[in-house]
Structure formats: C-alpha cells, structure tokens
C-alpha cells in the first residue's frame, strides 16, 4: 500500500501549522504544531475523539479557520498568503460536505446544486441546467430535482451536499463527519459513493470521523488525532493492524470489542505464548497456517480471529496460543511466508 503513494504528488501540505483559539483573552491551543502531506488522489482519514481538533484541522485546509502559525499549501499555492479575492477563487477548487449537510432550506435541490456555479459567475441557464442534471444523475437523485431539502431523507440530503460540492469540478473534497448523522446502511451507501467519486474523478478526499469503520471502509491513509496532536499516521492497514498509540488501540478495540486485550485475558489462562498473527493480501486466502503447523508439529489454540477487508485489501488477524518444542521454528516459517507476528503481553 505505501508503495502506491511513494511517487505521488503532494496536494495538501501543512508545514509547522498550529492553531489556538482566543477565548476570554486567553489562547487555548486546539492543534499542536504539526506537518502533514496529503497526496494526490488518495482518501485521507483523520480520526479522533470529540474535541480532538478534527474539525479545526480540516477547516484549516480551505482557511475557514486561519492557522495561528505555519504554512498551508494547496499544490504550489500558499493559501495562508492569499489576499481575500484570490482565496475565494482557490476555495472553488475545494469542495466541502458537512455533518448536518448545510443545504439552503429556501432553495430546491437543483438550485442548491446550481448555487456554487452561480457563485462562480456562471450565467448561462442552459449550461447550469446541464451540469446540475449531470451531477444529480451521478448521485442518484435525478428525480428529486424539484424538491426542497426538508422533503428529503438524511442520506439524500448528503447526496445533494456531494453533488453541490462537486459542481465546480474541485480537485479536493473535504468531508467533515459526513456520515455521522446517518444510520449504518445509509452511511455505507454514502461511503460507497465517495469511494466511487475518488476512483472515477481522481480527486483527493480528506475526511474526518470518530468512527474507525469509516476509515477502514474507504481511506488509504489515516492520521490519529488525540487532544490536538497527531499521535500516529500511515496506511490504514499499518495503523489499524498494528496500533502503537493507546488512542489508536482504543479505536481498534471499540470497533472489535471481542478481540480487545481485556476480552482475551481470561481465555489466555490456558498457557503457552499468546500471539497475534496478521495476514495481508494474498496470504489471507492461502493455507499457510495449517501447512506450517502440520509440518512443525506444534499445537495451537485459537482465541479470536477475523477475516475482513480494509478498503480493497483482504486481511486476517488471528489471536492464538502456541504449545510445543518446535514453536520458534514454526514462527520463523510463518514469518517467511509473509505473516506478521506479535507476541501479546499476558
């Protein structure tokens, strides 16, 4: 996964950026100094608990929030140095969708989608109609063009939000908790739509969320934000299959409670070493484990396990205990076959 982005161009670059809010004459830090590169065409997730600074971070990208220090670049353009009119022009290259949709209640679906086109100075009604039709078709709302937002479901409203955000053919799409107000099924369909847009239009998506599932479903890389600090970042598979920071681990445990260390503790009384085996990609689907165990004559006792996908990458994670004199040789063979092995504390 990391190789896929090694040669990509950076589209969003934070350089020593930090942000404090002034509250009652005092500067309260919301984001500690950080640097971060977001690459062309990737889906970049930022996960964190409430108040971690996620919204602040994403709003820095289009300068809805001004940084207290540092520089923010979109491509070669230094956003933080732009005068107001140039900044407005730049913002048209960045679409944004919101948790609460933020549609104009007084306008129809079609007018909401046409709004950014009109703001950008498009006057040709035929052109606007054609573009709006195309966008509503893309998000599957063609037959709702004449309705008002109040007449739509949450999922439909977010689709209008997406169509609106795409109207000016942006290069970047920012998603501020875009699915947090939606039920799981609607969330899945909106995420699928975002993934399809990322694939087809090749635009870069930055999304923030407090749900690990959202990150696992569509993100390529992720940064974990904890109390204004980026504590971990990397490909989604690296970060979530081998969480290092306590906050990351908590997100993983919340998503997979049956595999959390605390849940496994009583099971591990059976003795032997407790190991977590991680299979990625093709190894997930091959019978490596049974072959090695058979050949080495080692016994294993399965404590927990799952086979799932991170975006398109299949992976498996098994927690087990090993017993037998040949255990080390078995582990060496497993490592050789590309399986990642961690010894869990007990």
């Amino acid at each position: 996964m990391s190789a896929r982005f090694a040669t990509r161009i950076t589209v969003i670059r934070f350089l020593d950026v930090h942000k404090s809010y002034r509250v009652d004459g005092k500067d309260i830090p919301a984001l500690q100094p950080f640097s971060l590169d977001i690459l062309d065409g990737e889906v970049f997730g930022i996960i964190g608990h409430s108040g971690a600074g996620k919204s602040t971070l994403i709003r820095l990208i289009n300068l809805l929030e001004r940084p207290s220090g540092g520089r923010i670049l979109i491509g070669d353009t230094e956003m933080t140095a732009l005068p107001e009119p140039a900044l407005r022009a730049q913002r048209r290259r960045i679409g944004m969708i919101f948790q609460h949709f933020n549609l104009l209640a007084s306008q129809t679906v079609a007018d909401n989608v046409a709004f950014p086109l009109r703001l950008a100075g498009e006057r040709d009604a035929a052109k606007i109609d054609a573009r709006v039709g195309e966008l509503l078709e893309r998000v599957g709302l063609a037959e709702h063009a004449g309705k008002y937002p109040a007449q739509l479901s949450g999922g439909q409203k977010q689709r209008v939000g997406i169509a609106r955000a795409l109207a000016n053919r942006p290069e970047i799409l920012l998603c501020d908790e875009a699915t947090s107000a939606l039920d799981p099924q609607t969330t899945a369909s909106v995420l699928d739509l975002l993934a399809a847009i990322n694939r087809e239009l090749k635009l870069t998506i930055v999304l923030i969320t407090h749900e690990m599932d959202v990150v696992r479903r569509i993100c390529d890389r992720v940064a974990v934000l904890d109390a204004g600090r980026i504590v971990e970042s990397g490909t989604v598979a690296d970060v979530f299959l081998h969480p290092r920071h306590a906050t990351t681990r908590r997100f993983v445990d919340e998503a997979l409670p049956e595999e959390a260390a605390s849940a496994l503790a009583p099971l591990a009384q059976v003795g032997g070493r407790v190991l977590r085996l991680t299979f990625r990609g093709a190894t997930t689907l091959s019978p490596v484990l049974s072959r090695v165990m058979r050949e080495s004559g080692v016994d294993f006792n399965l404590l927990a396990g799952r086979i799932d996908r991170i975006k398109e990458l299949p992976y498996g994670q098994l927690t087990l205990t090993l017993e037998g004199t040949n255990a080390d040789a078995a582990l060496a063979s497993l490592r050789e076959a590309g399986i990642e092995i961690e010894e869990l504390p007990r």
């Binding site: 809805l64 730049q90 913002r91 048209r92 960045i94 944004m96 919101f98 933020n102 709004f115 950008a120």
Partner: peptide, 8 residues
Amino acid sequence: EAAQAMGA
C-alpha cells in the same frame, strides 16, 4: 459556512 467554503 458552506457558502464561504464555496468561495462566496
């Protein structure tokens, strides 16, 4: 805010 983000 949405309008601002659109460059209004």
